[in-house]
Amino acid sequence: MVAAAGTFDLPEDDARGAHHPRSLRVPPLLTVGARLAMISPSGPLQGPHELELAVATAESLGWKVQVGQHALRRTGYFAGDDAQRGDDLLAALHDDTIDGIWCLRGGYGAARLLPRLSVELLQRYPKALIGYSDITALHAAWQQAGLVSYHGPTARAPLSDFSRDSLVRALQHGTDSCGAAPEARVVRGGRATGRLVGGNLALVSSLCGTPWAVDFHDAIVVLEDIGEATYRIDRMLTQLRLAGAFEGCAGVAFGQFTDCPDTTDDGTRTIEAIVTELADALHVPTLQGLPFGHISDQWTVPFGASATLDADARTLSVSTVSMSQFHQTHQRARI
């Protein structure tokens, strides 16, 4: 059995955002024997072999798996229609025997399920959420509800030793799942502490102006993307700046921008130039090239948790004191 979710108060300075709850709720650690729902809230799997790999990976971590009814469906570029994908998500949330939700893949479609969610629903049924890319839309909902969620590998992908280690530290041990990134580029030096928010840049920018917009205030903003020409990266960051989204952010942690060409018929502009321009405008510590995004070796980043970005040292360190205190307190209560 796993622990029930717990709540602890955030510092005053972390509670000023309009959509940022005063209390952070931590879903239970997914220790051996935890039961996970595997669902496809976005794009379709390429076949049963991907589901078989996902189940085998979860079982190798000591987890029990319940596969969503429509996990293998395909409707155009969705894993089933909105109703089917939404039904699997809601079934996982309402099932008291399910401890966490591991999304099988990204793609596109998770944002279309947001109308079926509410802050009250997520707070009533707190579950650990795992995934990245298009799953950013669901992370945004968890963040609105003040729940920690986990920007990490999707279940269908082979799990490298690096990714497995970070995933286990985040979800089974409740320890720092990030750390040093010696290959990262120091864009702007300095040190900042704040809660972790963000995800895939295309999704974060698309949620701007909606009730599910990600609140950057007092936060370390985590961003990554794939397959976007650099002028589109520029456009999305400009949209967020014009909307005032970056006002009051503590720092920016850029992950990998995979397969993002910097040359068009009209000229060339690099990711490095675009990121530097943003950091100079914001005057906050900024790192680029951290190990998260569409890569084999990636950190599992606990959104909602407090972390310190030390740009000069090239580190992102997750503060696990409050979460560890909760889990230790619960374990003592069980004995």
Rank of each mutant, 00 (worst) to 15 (best):
E12D: 15
R156E: 09
F246W: 10
D280A: 11
L309M: 05
L290C: 08
G190F: 03
S324W: 01
R74W: 05
S149H: 06
L287S: 09
A71N: 06
D81P: 00
A243L: 06
W299T: 07
I295Q: 11
W212E: 03
F326K: 02
I274P: 10
R35S: 08
P11S: 09
L122G: 01
A111Q: 13
R124M: 12
C178E: 03
L237D: 13
M38S: 02
T320S: 11
F78M: 04
L316D: 01
I130T: 03
C103K: 08
A202D: 06
A145F: 01
G255A: 13
V168C: 08
A145M: 00
T276E: 12
L171S: 04
G209H: 08
A15V: 14
P285A: 06
C103Y: 05
A141I: 05
L10C: 02
R112M: 07
A219W: 06
F216Y: 15
R269G: 11
S317E: 10
P302W: 08
T97V: 09
A140K: 00
R124W: 06
A229S: 10
A3L: 15
T175N: 01
D165K: 13
P48H: 08
I226A: 13
V222M: 15
T238E: 07
A307R: 03
G146H: 03
H94M: 07
E224I: 04
G86M: 01
D265N: 14
C249A: 09
I101C: 14
T308E: 04
S319P: 00
A110Q: 01
V148G: 01
G189L: 01
I220V: 15
E247A: 15
R332P: 12
G43N: 04
E224S: 14
